[in-house]
């Protein structure tokens, strides 16, 4: 995550690709978060394993989304936000002053709860991340857009309509477009904040297949309300409750033989 200085952007991205061959490590130490006086995260330690899917589960308001947004520092713009503790990615503390948050976010993509395509064409949506980096090479952008759309399993559906407005796509297609948009800048980590909560079951299944496929190349952290979804797609699961990490371990273990009573109560549907 060091702000390295590169001669030009295409090269910049190549360095990026090299980075990806070495899967990233994520360590969180004693992290606390406040919104004004309200303590949203009460001191969490966790280490995320590379090239896996980790699911964050827990009842609404447990802090799982806030926690997820720490990794790409999306909370920075919220009024009254304060944070303590360390988050290290590849051994570097991402909250250090010299870390350039724009570079960090290029490295760590994010997919949001509701599909949020820009009111632009399909092509422009996917190319956006490249263009804001100042890349002008049309051939390069073209190739990247195609590659990202293929990775997101959307290419076949839209390849003849790249100029069409993204808002004309269905909800499921829009969300896959948002994933493609994230993939186009070739991040190494992808954060997903309840990416299927606004979608129908068929679109959800498609996205879940996609997540399984992406895990080969990317480290994925997904916040989900849907426990079946967590058990279907994740390798590891972390259960949050009122700002605390209650239990973290292999998904299979959490869902079949949790150690904590609270976890068991939640996954068996006794509260939530």
């Amino acid at each position: 995550m060091e702000p390295t200085i590169h001669k030009n952007n295409t090269q910049d991205l190549k360095v990026n690709e090299v980075l990806q061959k070495k899967p990233p490590t994520i360590e969180v130490k004693e992290v606390k978060v406040w919104y004004d006086d309200f303590m949203a995260i009460k001191g969490i330690d966790i280490a995320i394993k590379p090239n896996t899917v980790t699911a964050f589960i827990g009842p609404s308001g447990c802090g799982k989304s806030t926690f997820l947004r720490l990794f790409n520092r999306m909370n920075d713009y919220i009024d009254g936000y304060k944070m303590e503790g360390k988050i290290k990615i590849n051994g570097k503390n991402i909250n250090k002053k010299k870390v350039i948050v724009e570079v960090l976010r290029k490295e760590i993509g994010m997919v949001f709860q509701k599909p949020n395509p820009f009111p632009k064409s399909i092509f422009e949506n996917v190319a956006y991340g490249l263009k804001i980096q100042g890349i002008k090479d049309k051939n390069f952008i073209q190739k990247r857009v195609e590659k990202a759309l293929k990775q997101a399993d959307l290419w076949e559906e839209v390849k003849d309509n790249l100029k069409k407005s993204a808002l004309a796509l269905s909800g499921g297609q829009q969300q896959r477009l948002c994933i493609a948009r994230t993939l186009a800048v070739e991040p190494s980590i992808i954060l997903m904040d309840e990416p299927t909560s606004a979608l129908d079951p068929i679109s959800t299944a498609k996205i879940e297949d996609l997540i399984r496929e992406l895990k080969k190349k990317y480290t994925i952290i997904i916040v989900t309300h849907n426990m079946q979804q967590a058990s279907r797609i994740s390798d590891y699961t972390a259960f949050f409750y009122i700002g605390d990490l209650i239990e973290y371990g292999k998904t299979k273990k959490i869902f079949t033989n949790p150690e904590k009573k609270q976890t068991e109560n939640y996954i068996t549907g006794r509260f939530g």
């Binding site: 702000p3 910049d12 724009e102 804001i132 980096q133 100042g134």
Partner: peptide, 9 residues
């Protein structure tokens, strides 16, 4: 100066 630094400036 690379493009990210330029944009930040």
């Amino acid at each position: 100066m690379n493009s990210i630094q330029k944009n930040r400036l």
